[in-house]
Design a protein around this nucleic acid. Structure first.
Length: 591
RNA sequence: CGGGGUAUGGCUCAGUUUGGUAGAGCGCUUCGUUCGGGACGAAGAGGCCGCAAGUUCGAAUCUUGUUACCCCGACCA
């Protein structure tokens, strides 16, 4: 490929609306173009990258006995009625009607389509287990797309669905998939991706893991234990409180606290520690606007995911008016109106001297002891774990918090979809059962952007060779010089003949600085500079994009050197790919 | 959905306060001189100033409405 003909222009200035590096560099480098809010087209440079990522994914899915299929993007709403998700999923599901006023959806995930595809086929236990997958576009009408390709509305996703006749079988397969996913990220040159335990959200099911690329610009918060290696998404991380605060019991007193509507105000006014206060965060149920109050220790925050799981239905942050039974700013667990559902977080357990709202304008209680003053006080885990908290796994105070981008996830779904959609098989004894499902996703475009985010410098991306748009980038510094062009042309031809992916910059009249800048933006791992200056010494310059290699190589040895370097870069990545457990084959009868 | 911001050529922006018929740099085209980290000179192409209505002799500029995009939050497999 000649750079001159490459579609997609590169430019010098940072686009005004790019906030994170990968977004700015990928727009500047001519990788993609914004079409609308959270909607992008891919130029050839990016398309080549995503195609390579997809190839890696396909190999690994095939290696764990996946069979590639293709579901439609547009699905009839009836199918989503079957699972109940037409109603239960929020506005991210784009609903519309066709010309006959039939209700349709743009598929944002394909569990329904997967069950639909195989429910007639897989009526006998003998067909199990099996896995189907596709690489296809998804549309999710995200409330707020952001950060370039990291969070978009339409995107390419590999989604896989496995079907099993027992939980043990699912777990066995889940483990294989877990390894396959590791291999995918290792092969794509981002072995630093870590797995974390996660909340399974609207997907249903129990066990799930997310694959996180750690970066400060990540949208997810991840909890690490430095002592035992525990890792979890903040949403799912258990907050195992051990309150060792000095508990000096005091009598319950109602005191005046004028104009003190926040914990900060109250504690300043009463000269008490925020750790000895009880904070109220108010929500309402989506269904009927009924209030749900979460009480947490003053210095803690509510983990809404965990709260939602405990409440058992969808909730949203509340707006309190004067007619409501709650007094905004003065809400406390003692003397609270009987019609309000409330929960006490574990962070409050064992504190004998709390400051809390008195449910009365301008008043708070001091000396509140929940165990003593509140009949049948029970505690639930609804708060966010904090830096330095106690690890829920090993109990040591070694929790650290980092940010990450979720590039993949795997779920044990159970029978949620097979039951709701009436998929059954007959076992050896002629009895009917619902198959157990797993599902496994990877966002392809997000992965490309994440790799850029994790591997770039101020001049551009530094693509790992396994997913780079090209393997070798030749810069011919003076294409108007006959001898120089002849050498560069010949090298280009030889590399092409050898099956190497080469981008060749032989533009005349483009100055070296501009050529190097373009090369930096394309981020190709091996760069070859052919110039009159080098040829005078009978050498060409060969460097890697990450600057780890910089060699002047004799002209006639350049081809061999490039081939060697290219192979070495591939080998370095391959060396980090973990092996599969040998003969763990999904096909029962040895096939 | 709430709060804030922006909309002027392919990109980055000025001009809007004080109304007078559109500018700069980069990029693009042509020519010349250059040539190892985004060169220089000359000539040129390209914009009904997001859209609609209004005020006015006259609107990029003032008023109203509307749309799109960006940021923060809410929400989110």
């Amino acid at each position: 490929m000649k750079l001159e003909k490459l579609i997609g222009s590169r430019f010098k200035e940072k686009p005004a609306d790019c906030v994170i590096d990968s977004h700015a560099l990928m727009v500047r480098g001519g990788y993609m173009k914004n079409v609308g809010n959270g909607i992008f087209s891919e130029y050839p440079a990016l398309k080549r990258i995503t195609a390579k990522i997809e190839r890696i994914i396909r190999r690994e899915m095939d290696a764990i006995d996946g069979q590639e299929v293709l579901f439609p993007v547009v699905l009839p709403a009836d199918l989503w009625d079957e699972s109940g998700r037409y109603e239960s999923v929020g506005n991210e599901l784009l609903r519309f009607s066709d010309r006959n006023q039939s209700r349709m959806v743009l598929a944002m995930t394909h569990e329904e389509a997967a069950v639909h595809l195989v429910r007639e086929y897989a009526q006998s236990y003998a067909k199990y287990p099996f896995m189907i997958y596709q690489v296809q576009r998804k549309f999710r009408d995200e409330a707020r797309p952001r950060a370039g390709m990291i969070r978009v509305r339409e995107f390419t996703m590999k989604d896989a669905y496995s079907f099993h006749t027992s939980q043990e079988d699912l777990e066995r397969y889940y483990d294989r998939c877990y390894v396959a996913y590791n291999r995918i990220f290792q092969k794509a040159g981002i072995p630093e991706v870590v797995t974390v335990a996660s909340d399974s959200g609207m997907m249903g099911g129990n066990i799930s893991h997310e694959y996180m690329l750690l970066t400060p610009v990540g949208e997810d918060t991840i909890v690490f234990c430095d002592a035992c290696g525990y890792r979890a998404n903040m949403e799912a991380a258990e907050n195992k409180m051990v309150n060792d605060l000095p508990g000096v019991a005091a009598p319950l007193q109602c005191v005046e606290t004028p104009e003190c509507k926040t914990i900060e105000d109250v504690c300043r006014y009463l000269k008490s520690d925020e750790k000895l206060s009880c904070k109220a965060v108010v929500y309402q149920k989506n269904a009927n606007d009924q209030f749900v109050v979460a009480f947490v220790r003053g210095d803690y925050e509510v983990n809404e995911t965990k709260l939602r799981n405990i409440v058992g239905e969808e909730i949203h942050t509340a707006e309190i008016t004067e007619d409501d039974p709650l007094v905004a700013g003065y809400i406390g667990p003692y003397d609270i109106s009987g019609e309000v559902e409330f929960y006490l977080d574990v962070s409050l357990q064992g504190i004998e001297n709390l400051v809390a709202g008195a449910n009365r304008e301008g008043y708070h209680y001091t000396g509140l002891n929940l165990e003593r003053d509140l009949e049948g006080a029970e505690y639930v885990d609804i708060s966010k774990i904090q830096e330095g908290s106690v690890c829920p796994c090993c109990g040591k105070k070694a929790i650290t918090i980092k940010r990450g981008i979720e590039v993949g996830n795997i779920f044990q779904l159970g029978t949620k979809y097979t039951e709701s959609m009436g998929m059954q098989y007959t076992d050896e004894n002629g009895e009917l059962h619902y198959p157990i499902m797993g599902c496994y996703g990877i966002g392809v475009g997000r992965m490309a952007a994440s790799i850029c985010e994790a591997h770039h410098d101020e001049y551009g991306p530094i693509w790992p060779i396994s997913i780079a748009p090209w393997e070798v980038h030749i810069c011919c510094l003076r294409a108007d010089d006959e001898e120089t062009r002849a050498v560069a042309d010949r090298l280009y031809g030889e590399l092409l003949d050898a099956g190497v992916e080469v981008i060749y910059d032989d533009r005349e009249g483009v100055r070296p600085g501009a050529m190097f800048s373009d090369a930096d933006l394309l981020g190709v791992p091996v760069r070859v500079v052919v110039s009159p200056r080098n040829l005078k010494e009978h050498v060409v310059e060969i460097t890697t994009r990450d600057k780890s290699v910089k060699e002047m190589v004799a002209q006639e040895e350049a081809f061999a050197y490039i081939q060697g370097l290219r192979q070495r870069l591939h080998d370095e990545i391959a060396a980090k790919v973990e092996p599969y457990d040998s003969d763990d084959n999904m096909t029962r009868n040895g096939d």
